[in-house]
Design a protein around this nucleic acid. Structure first.
Lengths: 126, 126
DNA sequence: GCAACATGCAACCGATTGGTTGTATGTTGG
DNA sequence: CCAACATACAACCAATCGGTTGCATGTTGC
């Protein structure tokens, strides 16, 4: 069950781990672009850009819509949000760590309280 | 200037694009672990886990602290947050697209308004 | 001091990545 | 109809990745 989610996380982060693909995401989140319009923006072959688009599409970060002989590409902001939420989950784990540390500090205070006074001697030897 | 930021994004997303490394991040965000303690958790060699830790460290997602003969690893929640903020920036671009669409809709309404009535005939032929 | 542990690093290997070129398939305007 | 365009896909290549093993170094307990 959680296996699919890890597969999806692999695909998400891998897709975003390339600056050309991140730049494509910026453009297609701002508005629809055909694949060739995107390809014209980069100093590489059409096929290379098309493969980048395919990687992003397989990861679910963008969708394509046919319009005549063109394929219009559009970014999926929900997918971007779900990547962000994965990072928020990581942050929540960290919050748990801090909470545990706070508990320890509180426990320390509880241990100090029963003592008559922090500086009063417990050494009862005369 | 923005070049370094893209390099950092490359390192961040690449580091997180592996489930073992994401799992390591969960553990070290929850609390400090030695490298060998981490290695014991996975069905792979110590060297493999050590390389994963090195990738995460180079990306700035975790830090190491020497304690005797052990190296204690701790997750950096600030780095995790900065990855999340990169995704938020993407989402903001999308918001701009929606705002532009809303403007167009508003402009359309403005064009309709001057008409006496949507259904009233502009065809004045009797 | 030394045996055992914890770590780092290099060399190697198969799989994958990011790029190329070439070719096939639709789609459209004139 | 057909030439030009938009896309898809396969084959290939150098580089990188994720893993291994082996070895060197540092640290500790006794």
């Amino acid at each position: 069950m959680t296996e699919q989610r890890e597969d999806q996380a692999d695909a998400f982060f891998h897709a975003l781990a390339d600056r050309t693909r991140r730049d494509i995401m910026r453009r297609v989140l701002a508005g629809e672009h055909s694949v060739s319009a995107l390809a014209a923006k980069y100093d590489m072959s059409f096929a290379a850009v098309q493969k980048h688009v395919a990687v992003l599409e397989r990861a679910g970060l963008l969708t394509k819509r046919r319009s005549g002989r063109e394929q219009l590409v559009s970014g999926d902001v929900e997918a971007v949000r779900s990547v962000a939420s994965m990072l928020t989950e990581l942050e929540q784990i960290w919050r748990g760590r801090i909470a545990r540390i706070d508990e320890l500090i509180a426990a320390d205070l509880n241990l100090e309280e029963p003592c008559p006074s922090p500086t009063s001697g417990t050494t009862s030897t005369p």
